[in-house]
């Protein structure tokens, strides 16, 4: 069986496993029905906290609002919208992150001066930054992408510095003996050597960009994405908990899809090296 199919299969099996455990918990400590009296009464296992799997599944095909389209369609539209923001944030963040890493590797002064700020930037909660960005760029696709980029550039910078410094010093001496320009050293040695490090960071960045996009939608007042959907279903949780769970599942799927996309690019671009390094 090819690797991809095997991965998909184990993922599916695990998802089924989670669903089974979920329902077993409800069976043991959930709410009583006509046919079954659970031996325990667990607060976490109530229908409000843990809706039945079939209720969550059912929520996808029921209208999200009266006379509106089904929730599944709404969430797919929202997912596409959020994915686009996340992708924009990912691209901006990856380019910024890599650019910073390249600058830092070439300038010890700038590295010493700026890296503390880069680190500090990540301790400022995104919730605090988001309104500033929204006011600056106006609420819209771009401002959400920038907020998302704020989360994604960091792992790329840190891994990039490490990766760009990873070549064997003798490899750099060889390049020196070829009288290679800095650009040649960067393009032919440092960047290829950094690629496995960068892909590891890009996989982190891919999922972070989805989180960034979802959170970025909240202060922007954007209702078309998953952030808007989650906020909305949060407010109506008491009356329809399954809808929020459905939105959470879709958000998770977007993250996984993005991750798989990056992994695919990694396999294609690093294929010569994968025999040795199963990155």
């Amino acid at each position: 069986m090819p690797q991809v199919a095997r991965n998909a299969l184990s993922f599916a099996l695990f998802a089924i496993g989670i669903a089974v455990v979920w329902e077993v918990v409800k069976l043991l400590g959930g709410e009583p029905t006509d046919a079954w009296q659970p031996p325990f009464q667990w607060k976490i296992a109530t229908d409000l906290n843990m809706p039945h799997i079939w209720d969550i599944g059912g929520a996808f095909v029921e209208p999200a609002q009266r006379n509106g389209p089904v929730l599944g369609a709404v969430l797919v539209d929202a997912a596409v919208f959020t994915f686009r923001e996340a992708f924009g944030g990912f691209v901006i963040g990856a380019l910024l992150g890599l650019g910073l890493a390249i600058v830092f590797v070439h300038s010890p002064f700038l590295e010493r001066a700026l890296v503390p700020y880069v680190v500090a930037s990540q301790t400022v909660p995104i919730i605090a930054i988001a309104p500033v960005v929204v006011i600056w760029l106006q609420a819209g696709w771009l401002s959400v992408a920038v907020i998302s980029a704020y989360l994604t550039f960091f792992p790329v910078t840190i891994a990039g510095i490490r990766g760009l410094r990873s070549p064997d010093p003798r490899a750099l001496e060889l390049m020196r003996s070829y009288a290679a320009s800095r650009r040649d050293v960067l393009v032919k040695v440092r960047l290829p050597a950094a690629a496995p490090y960068l892909f590891t960071a890009l996989k982190v960045a891919a999922t972070a960009s989805v989180v960034g996009a979802i959170i970025g939608e909240l202060p922007s007042g954007i209702r078309d994405g998953l952030g808007g959907a989650i906020l909305n279903f949060n407010q109506y949780y008491i009356s329809g908990p399954a809808k929020l769970w459905a939105a959470i599942i879709v958000a998770a799927l977007v993250g996984i899809a993005f991750f798989v996309l990056v992994r695919g690019a990694e396999i294609v671009l690093l294929r010569g090296r994968l025999g040795r390094t199963q990155a």
């Binding site: 064997d168 003798r170 490899a171 001496e173 060889l174 003996s177 040695v189 290829p192 690629a195 690093l270 010569g272 090296r273 040795r276 390094t277």
Partner: peptide
């Protein structure tokens, strides 16, 4: 230049 280790580029 040739070093003790070949220093070939994996990629």
């Amino acid at each position: 230049i040739v070093f003790q280790s070949p220093v070939l580029f994996d990629w």
